[in-house]
């Protein structure tokens, strides 16, 4: 396999992994999108009509919002029986190097408990 192709595949993979919503991202989203995402997080998959009623926009504007979220992989559509529904896809958290020493976090707990012992 030539390196160019490998790199291309890797980039694709990275993009795939990056797909989905990270909660930190919600905090910096434009208010209308943020409100929509927050609302969707709290319920089972919703229909286009549900979304339109929630955002109180016309069909075109609602489609544009959903499209923007779907392009970023934040919203996915699910085929539920006969009607198309939408749901938020939360990004799987990737493995990371140990941010805190494990003993440190256990110790923290133990210290908290001991703080008040006679």
């Amino acid at each position: 396999m030539n390196t160019g192709l490998f790199e291309q595949l890797q980039r694709k993979l990275d993009e795939q992994e990056a797909a989905g919503l990270t909660m930190t991202e919600v905090l910096t989203m434009a208010a209308p999108l943020r409100r929509l995402v927050n609302w969707m997080l709290r319920q089972p998959p919703v229909t286009f009509t549900d979304v339109m009623a929630f955002v109180a926009e016309d069909e075109g504007a609602t489609r544009a919002m959903l499209k923007a979220l779907m392009e970023k992989g934040i919203v996915h559509s699910v085929n539920d029986a006969e009607v198309l529904r939408y749901r938020v896809q939360i990004a799987p958290r990737r493995g990371r190097p140990i941010p805190l020493n494990i003993w440190q976090s256990l110790e923290e707990k133990i210290q908290n408990e001991q703080e008040y012992l006679p």
Partner: peptide, 23 residues
């Protein structure tokens, strides 16, 4: 268990499972 805690710290986990799990 120390091993289980270490694994979470090392590998992270799929946060979306939490939301589905609560429901």
């Amino acid at each position: 268990k120390v091993g289980e805690i270490a694994r979470i710290l090392r590998e992270g986990y799929d946060v979306s499972l939490l939301n589905d799990g609560f429901q």
